[in-house]
Simulated scan of single mutants.
Amino acid sequence: MANHNELGKKGEQLAVDFLLENNYSIIARNYRFDKAEVDIIAQIEDTLAIVEVKTRTSTTFGNPQDFLKPKQIKRIVKAVDEYVLINQLDVEIRFDIIAIVKEGKQFKIEHLKDAFYHF
């Protein structure tokens, strides 16, 4: 497996662990619809948190969250609309990013809530 794939998988697991430690329930991982993949669907209280995980080895070329493109956001929103419709959910929905940067052997994790509003 390519190093960037391994880093991505490690980042997603770190994000799941982070969410669990912060009282979120993990509802789904890697939910796919059409051309989109939602990394994590989590819930805290009555809010469904749609979490995109971005992991990088450095910030030399920008912060991890800077690599989320408008087209990808549109696809994620479409996938979540379908997920909510299929599952007949009546919850608040929030789009978050968990940005992870590998610093030596450690990982710095930043949870950006309502992140899609900043694009």
Results as ranks from 00 to 15, higher is better:
residue 3 N to P: 04
residue 3 N to F: 10
residue 4 H to E: 15
residue 7 L to P: 00
residue 10 K to L: 13
residue 16 V to S: 02
residue 18 F to V: 07
residue 21 E to W: 02
residue 21 E to M: 09
residue 23 N to V: 09
residue 32 R to C: 04
residue 32 R to D: 03
residue 36 A to S: 01
residue 38 V to L: 11
residue 38 V to K: 09
residue 40 I to T: 10
residue 42 A to D: 08
residue 43 Q to M: 13
residue 44 I to N: 14
residue 44 I to T: 06
residue 49 A to M: 03
residue 49 A to F: 12
residue 50 I to M: 09
residue 51 V to Q: 02
residue 51 V to D: 01
residue 53 V to P: 11
residue 55 T to H: 00
residue 55 T to K: 01
residue 59 T to K: 14
residue 60 T to A: 14
residue 61 F to R: 11
residue 62 G to I: 02
residue 63 N to L: 09
residue 65 Q to G: 03
residue 66 D to M: 02
residue 67 F to P: 03
residue 68 L to T: 05
residue 69 K to V: 06
residue 71 K to W: 12
residue 74 K to G: 09
residue 75 R to M: 12
residue 76 I to C: 11
residue 82 E to K: 15
residue 83 Y to S: 13
residue 83 Y to R: 13
residue 84 V to Q: 09
residue 86 I to P: 05
residue 88 Q to N: 15
residue 95 F to D: 00
residue 97 I to M: 00
residue 98 I to F: 10
residue 100 I to T: 04
residue 100 I to S: 01
residue 101 V to P: 06
residue 102 K to Y: 09
residue 102 K to S: 14
residue 103 E to P: 04
residue 103 E to R: 14
residue 104 G to C: 06
residue 104 G to R: 01
residue 105 K to S: 12
residue 108 K to W: 07
residue 110 E to G: 04
residue 111 H to A: 01
residue 118 H to Y: 12
